[in-house]
């Protein structure tokens, strides 16, 4: 094997700065098929996890997973949008785009968490809420609105982590949290850069330019105080290499849970209210 082949080199030996990923690069990383998804994090971070199903109203949405997990000797409720890695998986999880029943399942689990005084941890990873006739018939707008409204009153701490795509209202419906963290290569936006370019410039081909304009990267959103913490990714996190990131997130989560232990219910709600009141 040629000794100068890239894999054998340690890039740090060279005094060159790698070009910084552009906003559009990050859009593509966040959408990539080998990106770590919600279940990868759940399996990597928590000691136990039991999945729970259904919204008790209509169905069980595979685009939204949730259940009871334990971490560091404490029970928490974990909820997140789940993408599929192939067509077969995506038949169940609709590319991580929840229908109203997904949001209603999420809300049911949050209310359950509140009842049993379990903190809530949400993983956000969706291109947006599912767009289709059935979603409209069953009240997609109402389902998202209800989540924002009810999350505002939840008396246990909520932590939301944007791990991939944070697409619009469909993402925010899991995002009314006491703290919002973001993976370095995740994005969080009002709509896709393609949609933005198409609405404002009538040209969806200008998507990469739109990505630059929209302030959708973790770094920019930290500056805008939309997120509290950026989780670094020395390499883009994939399902294969997510172990270190999971370990780091586990530590940070345990610190988060400690911070809120013993905090009064009213104070938890008020802190969340203040957070969003500032926008």
């Amino acid at each position: 094997m040629d000794e100068f082949e890239m894999e054998t080199m340690d890039i740090n030996e060279f005094d060159v700065e790698l070009p910084k990923a552009t906003a559009w690069d990050r859009v593509l990383i966040a959408r990539s098929n080998d990106r770590a998804y919600t279940m990868d994090y759940i399996n990597g971070i928590f000691d136990n996890f039991m999945k729970l199903h259904g919204d008790r109203l209509y169905g069980d949405d595979g685009a939204m997973v949730g259940g009871i997990a334990s971490i560091d000797g404490q029970f928490v409720t974990v909820i997140g949008q789940q993408k599929g890695r192939n067509l077969k998986e995506n038949e169940v999880c609709h590319f991580g785009m929840p229908n109203p029943e997904g949001y209603r399942k999420a809300l049911r689990l949050m209310k359950q968490a509140e009842k049993f005084n379990r903190p809530i941890i949400c993983f956000i990873d969706t291109p947006g809420a599912f767009c289709g006739m059935e979603a409209e018939e069953r009240g997609q707008g109402e389902a998202i609105a209800r989540n924002l409204y009810e999350m505002a009153g939840i008396t246990v701490p909520i932590l939301s982590i944007v791990i991939g795509e944070g697409g619009s209202g469909g993402a925010l419906a899991l995002g009314v949290a006491n703290e919002v963290w973001m993976l370095e290569n995740a994005t969080y936006s009002i709509l896709s850069p393609e949609g933005f370019a198409s609405i404002l410039w009538k040209d969806s081909k200008r998507a990469s330019e739109a990505a630059d304009t929209m302030k959708i990267t973790a770094e920019e959103l930290k500056e805008l105080q939309v997120v509290e913490k950026v989780i670094e990714e020395p390499l883009p996190v994939t399902a294969e290499n997510c172990e270190d990131t999971c370990e780091m997130l586990r530590k940070e989560m345990i610190a988060f849970l400690k911070k809120y232990k013993g905090m009064k219910k009213e104070d938890i709600v008020e802190e969340r209210y203040r957070r969003f009141r500032n926008y």
């Binding site: 009002i190 805008l224 939309v226 926008y279």
Partner: peptide, 19 residues
């Protein structure tokens, strides 16, 4: 659209006030 993510945050802000 011109206000990007800050526009999205208004959904949470208004909803929580109504709560």
């Amino acid at each position: 659209m011109q206000e990007g993510i800050m526009s999205l945050m208004q959904m949470a802000k208004t909803s929580q006030a109504l709560k």
